[in-house]
């Protein structure tokens, strides 16, 4: 099982990586072109005094090194600054958006991983059969679908023709709810279409990776040993083959989580879902550096954390990883 020392070593690596990311993130935004003050002072006829007050307010008049240490201090106190465009603390905006994205992501990831892996196991177990072939073809087709297109088609089918689900936003605008259950139900309805879209488009890769790994594992000698022991095929499959095929699936899941948290932009746009993807997209357009800085940091931290977790899962699942 887990060895504490190894986990600690990994954790130290995580902290070093995070620190490097923080520094890079800081520098990146200082060298980017575009003067945020001019964007804020969009009216264009601000007096020089007003401009210098703004510079002072956002700390843009200090030397770079000083700014860096302010930045570090602020990070540790949870202070991410004020958004240039929203005029609200970045941390408040981010919290809200992250929550929305995580709701969407959690539902989609669970569905994508469970169904994708199950389909992959079924296909590998019946390799070469009609079931296998149709699952592979379906996965490839789904995987090739553009996300926004799939979303739009679902909007037309299930939102416009069959008015089954709401097509935009996270709650019904202007609605008041009698109970928290009604509120949840409303949220659930809004979740259906974006989740299905993500599931359709992303299930394929899990299915294909599970299938190809499992097909390899099923040719290993210990599978024959399992059969020779008199175990029925499904016991060999679930007891011996699937545990050995889990590693690539965990890697893919970790990558998927970090990808979707920043990359659900298409889905969030099509369904007007107020999540991280939309936030960053808008922030780029408006040069809202504090929002972008915080978002990038959050994304990097998510990627690092997801990889850390998958490393730990590796150690739990495969005893050989501990030696490495």
């Amino acid at each position: 099982m887990l060895r504490f020392g190894l986990v600690l070593k990994k954790a130290v690596q995580v902290i070093i990586t995070l620190f490097a990311v923080i520094t890079f993130n800081f520098l990146l935004f200082r060298v980017l072109p575009g003067d945020p003050i001019r964007l804020i002072a969009r009216a264009g006829n601000l007096s020089p005094e007003a401009i210098s007050r703004l510079r002072d307010l956002f700390g843009l008049d200090k030397p770079l090194v000083t700014q860096y240490f302010y930045y570090l201090r602020n990070l540790f106190t949870g202070e991410f600054g004020m958004s240039y465009t929203y005029r609200r603390p970045v941390i408040d905006i981010l919290q809200e958006r992250i929550a929305n994205t995580v709701i969407l992501l959690a539902a989609a990831t669970v569905i994508v991983v469970l169904i994708g892996v199950a389909a992959g196991v079924i296909a590998a177990a019946r390799r070469g059969s009609k079931t296998d072939q149709s699952l592979v073809v379906t996965s490839l087709v789904f995987w090739s679908l553009p996300t926004f297109w799939t979303g739009l088609i679902l909007v037309i089918l299930l939102g416009v023709y069959v008015k089954a689900f709401p097509v935009s936003g996270i709650t019904t605008p202007g609605a008041s709810f009698d109970s928290s259950f009604a509120r949840l139900l409303d949220l659930g309805k809004h979740l259906v279409l974006p989740t299905i879209t993500l599931a359709i488009v992303d299930m394929g890769q899990f299915m294909l990776i599970t299938r190809s790994t499992l097909v390899d594992v099923l040719t290993e000698d210990y599978i024959l040993t399992g059969k020779a022991k008199g175990l029925p095929f499904r016991r060999v499959l679930w007891g011996h083959a699937v545990p050995n095929a889990l590693l690539p699936i965990i890697t893919t899941t970790a990558l998927y989580v970090s990808l979707v948290i920043g990359g659900a932009i298409q889905v969030e746009t099509v369904f007007s879902w107020p999540g991280m993807g939309r936030l960053m997209y808008d922030a780029v357009l408006r040069r809202d550096y504090p929002i972008l800085e915080a978002s990038f940091l959050f994304l990097a931290a998510t990627v690092i954390l997801a990889n850390f977790l998958s490393d730990i899962m590796y150690m739990v699942i495969d005893p050989r990883v501990k030696e490495a």
Binding site: D221, Y222, T225, H240
Partner: peptide, 15 residues
């Protein structure tokens, strides 16, 4: 029962 070429891969590595 069978004895395979166990030096190779006949034992499941994760059990």
């Amino acid at each position: 029962s069978m004895v395979f070429q166990g030096a190779m891969n006949a034992l499941n590595p994760v059990k």
